[in-house]
Computed example of a mutant assay.
Amino acid sequence: MKYPIKVLIIEDDPNICNLLELYLEKEGYNVLFADDGEVGLERYYDINPDFVILDIMLPVMDGWSVCREIRKDRNIPILMITGKGESYDRIKGLELGADDYVVKPFDPKEVIARIKAILRRTNPHFDSKDNIDLTDFTINMMEYKVFRKGKDINLPPRELELLYFLVSQPNQVFTRQQLLDSIWGYDFDGDSRTVDVHIKRIREKIGEEIHHWSLKTIRGVGYKFEVKTID
């Protein structure tokens, strides 16, 4: 998938739209809007976006109906947002074919991370220009490979995706639940210790770099990939 990726935001709250626009455009996305479900569906057919951010509670036509109609057309990535957190909403979103789900209020950085995670899952070429190169450490998402000091490190897909998620957002702390939602999906009902197990395995395989970068545990919170400035 080539930039600029077209993102259609169907949301009736202008503050949320402005906030998402700020972060999305900073990432290089082309952002378009609709403030009710009916107009949103019309714009979807007119502009043929690459990604849809869809609120559930919308005027004229609700997000469920919009999602249902979009899914009749094609399997475009859809991130649903809502002020409700009940499991019913999540289950219904899954049944209608939504790719992910966030609850208001949300961290826009987390939304960006989830969008990228969805695009990586749905389009194998999305990360072809987003490979990461650090000192003696490379992640190649095109080939799904990790190299440390030139050596190919064998990481299963889930471990690699978790590592990439953290490395691509250096120095940002993520809770275990945020990592579960972003990598395993919001419908995952397993234990949060799953993240701890995967982090332990990753550390055992890639090792630690004391002076330049570190996969750090933030006690009582979660994890971050810390990149240190070298003078």
Rank of each mutant, 00 (worst) to 15 (best):
P49Y: 02
G220A: 02
K151C: 10
R114A: 01
R114P: 01
D130K: 13
V66L: 11
T175S: 12
V173G: 00
L79Y: 13
V227T: 05
I70E: 01
F33L: 06
L162F: 05
Y101Q: 06
E208V: 14
D136H: 14
F147C: 04
F188W: 10
V111C: 03
S87M: 15
E86R: 14
I91R: 09
M142V: 15
I210H: 06
Y3D: 06
L163V: 14
R74C: 11
D36W: 07
D35H: 14
I91S: 09
I218K: 02
N30H: 10
D35T: 15
V39W: 09
E95L: 14
E25Q: 14
L134G: 04
G37Q: 02
L8F: 05
G93T: 09
Y223E: 00
Q169K: 13
R176T: 09
K200G: 03
D191A: 06
F174I: 08
N140G: 08
D191K: 05
D231Y: 13
R120C: 10
R43G: 04
S128C: 14
A113S: 14
L20I: 07
G85H: 09
P49D: 02
K224S: 09
I47K: 03
C17I: 08
D133H: 14
V167F: 02
A34M: 01
Y3V: 03
E42W: 05
N30Y: 15
K92F: 11
D62T: 08
T175H: 06
I81W: 02
N171Y: 07
F33G: 04
M1K: 13
K149H: 12
W213H: 02
I81N: 03
G207S: 00
K116S: 07
D35K: 13
E38V: 12
M141D: 01
V103I: 15
H125P: 15
R68T: 12
R219I: 13
V146Y: 00
Y88N: 14
N75F: 15
P157N: 04
P156Q: 11
L163K: 01
E42Q: 09
F126E: 07
C17W: 03
L180Q: 05
K26L: 13
K200P: 09
K224T: 08
R158W: 09
H211N: 12
D62Q: 10
F33D: 03
I53H: 01
E69R: 14
Y144C: 10
L119D: 01
I118D: 03
I81T: 13
R203S: 00
I139K: 02
Y29Q: 05
L96E: 07
S214K: 13
G190I: 12
Q178I: 06
V146L: 04
R176H: 05
Y3A: 03
V221G: 00
Y44I: 02
W184N: 08
L96K: 07
T194L: 09
E208F: 11
E161T: 10
E38M: 11
L163G: 00
E11D: 11
L134R: 05
L19F: 04
I53P: 01
H211G: 12
D130F: 15
I76M: 08
N140I: 15
K6I: 08
F147V: 10
V7M: 03
R114L: 07
V52N: 00
K205I: 06
E25M: 14
L163F: 05
K84V: 15
